[in-house]
């Protein structure tokens, strides 16, 4: 049986998928997860989930609605106005810009791999 493993780096952060383990039951899966995925990397907590329990939207379906230009969704698009008058608006825009960069980098990496 295959168990997907999710690792949380620090308290308060999201659990992120980091790989999987083969194990006959939950206890063994937790033990293997700890050995294979918890020891080398900084770990605060681990989750194991039976693969069958995971739902997926596949590439084909994920494209639905995903190919539209969604620039209207981001603060950076509205550059006729300046966010610097309010720290919290500026911070939000910085976070969005950072997230956009990460998306761009992930996309490039994906393209390089294929």
């Amino acid at each position: 049986m295959i168990w997907e493993v999710f690792r949380q780096e620090k308290p308060g952060k999201y659990h992120q998928h980091c790989g999987n383990v083969h194990a006959p039951d939950r206890d063994m899966a937790l033990m293997f997860a700890q050995i294979q995925h918890g020891r080398r990397m900084q770990t605060n907590s681990l989750w194991v989930v039976p693969r069958d329990e995971i739902g997926e939207v596949d590439t084909e379906d994920a494209k639905f609605g995903g190919t539209t230009d969604k620039a209207y969704r981001w603060a950076m698009t509205y550059n006729n106005v300046d966010a610097s008058f309010a720290a919290e608006v500026e911070e939000s825009e910085d976070e969005q810009r950072e997230a956009a960069k990460k998306r761009e980098a992930a996309k490039k990496q994906e393209e390089a791999q294929s």
């Binding site: 209207y72 981001w74 603060a75 106005v81 919290e88 608006v89 911070e91 969005q96």
Partner: peptide, 23 residues
């Protein structure tokens, strides 16, 4: 607080879009 992280991430777009309409 966790919910606020996500809310504030998105709100910057709302406020700037609002200002853009006013402008």
């Amino acid at each position: 607080a966790h919910a606020m992280d996500k809310v504030c991430f998105e709100e910057g777009f709302h406020v700037k879009h609002g200002e853009d309409i006013l402008r």
